[in-house]
């Protein structure tokens, strides 16, 4: 828990990115809201930042997502399921708290899906 709280209080990738793909979504259960900014170069994630407000789990997850996904291939991320994503986090979560953790992952997936459509 101490580790989660220290990440939550000072997430490294908190902030905005100019000229990036971005999307903001909230968790209808609790009102947590995250805006994700993603830059992609040659099908690889080059930069991720986020802003928003939420509980320790949702902010922690957004920070973990940004740290884990930078450098990853877009298709690799697309192929991840919710379960795969939750396994990347160094904590086990109850079903309700999983929703907090999955918020940023859902936004990431939606950004990639929108890009595919366009």
């Amino acid at each position: 828990m101490d580790y989660i709280i220290s990440v939550y209080r000072k997430p490294k990738n908190y902030g905005k990115l100019e000229n990036a793909h971005s999307k903001s979504e909230s968790n209808p259960f609790c009102g947590d809201r995250i805006e994700l900014f993603v830059k992609i170069e040659n099908e690889k994630i080059s930069e991720i930042k986020f802003t928003g407000e939420g509980c320790t789990i949702s902010i922690f997850s957004a920070e973990m997502l940004s740290e884990n996904f930078i450098g990853k291939n877009v298709n690799e991320i697309k192929s991840l399921s919710d379960e795969d994503y939750l396994k990347l986090l160094p904590i086990s979560l109850t079903p309700t708290r999983q929703k907090c953790a999955l918020l940023s992952f859902r936004i990431m997936k939606n950004i990639l899906r929108d890009l595919e459509k366009n």
Binding site: C30, T51, G52, G54, C55, I57, C100
Partner: peptide, 14 residues
Amino acid sequence: KELIKNDIFVHPHD
């Protein structure tokens, strides 16, 4: 302030 920069607020979920 923005919650994240606010070290006095504890999110109700927590």
